[in-house]
């Protein structure tokens, strides 16, 4: 499974480093993090990690394999 997460705002390298498994693209006002997600547990783990760091997930979608 591959997922894409749109996060509101740009990320510092320290915070982006909390998601080493995801690649990062910066677009205006948002950061797109994308990459392989192992399973549901991993997905929810990522969402918790976003929340822990105070990040807002604007959009999340599964990418075609």
């Amino acid at each position: 499974m591959r997922y894409e997460f749109r996060i509101s705002g740009h990320l510092s390298s320290a915070v982006a480093g909390a998601f080493p498994e995801l690649d990062e693209v910066t677009v205006p006002e948002e950061t797109v993090l994308y990459g392989p997600v192992t399973d549901e547990a991993h997905l929810y783990g990522l969402l918790v990690r976003f929340q822990d760091l105070g990040l807002h997930v604007v959009e999340l979608r599964r990418l075609p394999d």
């Binding site: 705002g9 740009h10 990320l11 510092s12 320290a14 915070v15 006002e29 950061t31 105070g54 807002h56």
Partner: peptide
């Protein structure tokens, strides 16, 4: 004006 994530920007 910054485009950074709020929590990230402010804590930094």
């Amino acid at each position: 004006a910054s485009q950074n994530a709020v929590a990230d920007y402010l804590t930094a």
